[in-house]
Design a protein around this nucleic acid. Structure first.
Lengths: 197, 197
DNA sequence: TCGACAAGTCAACGCGCATTGACATGGGCC
DNA sequence: GGCCCATGTCAATGCGCGTTGACTTGTCGA
C-alpha cells in the first residue's frame, strides 16, 4: 500500500490542534484506503500516513481497527441522492456508465469497491447486509413507488451490482458495435425492471 | 480460521511419500481455505493443517503464498458444465437458486466467494478477467448461439454475478409472496436476455 | 501570564506470519 | 542389503502488525 501513502504533503500548513478535524481526516483516509486495498491489507499506519496523523490516535479515537472500519462503513452508505435521479434517463445513464471503464478516481467506484470488499469477508458481510437493507433497498423501494414492494428494488440492486462487478473485471471500456449493443440491452433490462411491469 | 483446521484426522493412514499427492492435497486445501476466509485471513499454517502436511512444503512447492493463490485460482476457474444446462428451464432454475440462501457448504458458493475475493484485488483482477473471458463468457456465447455475439453473454454473466452477490449479502432465503414475485421477475429478466431478442 | 488539560508524539511490546536452512527419513535402484 | 536422493520435519529468523503507556506540546480560560 506504500503507493497510496503520500508522506504528509510538505507544503501543507501544519493543522491546528483540532480533535474533530483529525478524526474526520482519519475517517476519510480510512474510507479511501479500505476501498483500495480491503480491510486486511490496509494497515493503521497507512491510514495515519494518508491522513497526516499518528497511528496511536486511531485506537484512541475509534477504539481499534474494527471500530474504525464500522464507522467508515456507516459513513460510506450515507443517505443517498436517489430522489434526484431522473427516472426517464436513469437506465440509459447507468448503461453508458457500465460500458465505460472503472475509474479509480471516481468516488463512486471507491465506494463500490469498499462495499465489495466488505461483502467478501464472512465477518463483515452480515453487517453490510443490514446496512444495505436500510440505506439502499429501502430508498430504492420508495423511489420506485411501493406498488411492487421490496422485490423490484432487490432485483434492480442485484443487476446494478452485477454490472459494476463486470465492469471492474473487464478493465477496459467497450468499443464500437459491441458497446452500442451492450448499452441498448442494458437499458432494456433495467427499463424492464423499473418500468410499470 | 481455527474452526476449519481439523488436525490431521488421526485414523487416516499416514500418506506414503508422494510429492504429487501432497501437492494436490495442499492445493485442494488452499482452494477451500481461500474461498472461506480470503487471502489475507488464511495462513499457510491453516492450509498445511487442513492438508495434513507441513507449512514449509508450501514455499517449496509453490514458491510462496502468492504462487499458491495463483495456482488455486487457475484450478478453480476450470472448464465448466454450461453445456449440460437445459435452456428451457435455465432461467427458472437460476431464479429459484437465487431466492434461496447462500450455502457455505456448497462448493459453488465457495468458488464464487473465492473469485469475488480475487476481483477486489488489483493484482488478481486482470488475471480473473482473462480467465472469465475464456472460460465463462466464451462458453455462454457458444451456448446462446453466436447471432448476437459476445455482448449478450456479457450481460447474462453480469446479471448472474449480481444475483449471486445479492444472495451472499442477503444471508437468509426469501419467503412468501416476496419469494414468488422475486422468482417471477428474475425469470423474466433472464429470459429477456437469452431469448430470441 | 500561567497553569491545566486536551491533543499529539514516540518508543516499545507481544504476536502471528511467511520464509529459510539444517536435519531426519523413507523407498526405489544398483 | 545398502546407498542416495527425493520427501518430509523442525526450529529459528526477521518483519509488520495493532495496541499500549509514558511523554511532550499546544491552546484556551482564569
Amino acid at each position: 500500500m506504500t503507493d497510496l501513502a503520500e508522506p504528509a504533503r510538505p507544503a501543507a500548513p501544519p493543522r491546528r490542534r483540532d480533535a474533530g478535524a483529525t478524526r474526520a481526516a482519519i475517517l476519510e483516509a480510512a474510507r479511501n484506503a479500505f476501498a483500495a486495498t480491503g480491510y486486511d491489507r490496509t494497515s493503521l499506519r497507512d491510514i495515519a500516513a494518508l491522513a497526516g496523523s499518528d497511528v496511536a490516535l486511531i485506537p484512541r479515537y475509534f477504539g481499534g481497527k474494527e471500530g474504525l472500519f464500522t464507522e467508515a462503513l456507516k459513513a460510506t452508505i450515507a443517505p443517498d441522492r436517489l430522489r434526484d435521479w431522473d427516472r426517464s434517463r436513469f437506465s440509459r445513464d447507468v448503461a453508458e456508465m457500465m460500458a465505460g471503464a472503472a475509474d479509480i478516481a471516481d468516488p463512486r467506484t471507491r465506494t463500490f469497491q469498499f462495499l465489495l470488499q466488505a461483502a467478501t469477508s464472512p465477518t463483515t458481510a452480515p453487517l453490510l447486509g443490514r446496512a444495505v437493507q436500510e440505506r439502499f433497498l429501502a430508498p430504492i423501494r420508495d423511489w420506485l413507488g411501493d406498488e411492487a414492494g421490496q422485490e423490484r428494488a432487490r432485483v434492480l440492486a442485484a443487476i446494478y451490482i452485477g454490472f459494476l462487478v463486470e465492469r471492474l473485471i473487464r478493465g477496459a471500456a467497450l468499443e464500437g458495435p459491441e458497446r452500442t449493443a451492450f448499452i441498448e440491452r442494458v437499458t432494456a433490462v433495467i427499463d424492464g425492471v423499473i418500468g410499470p411491469g
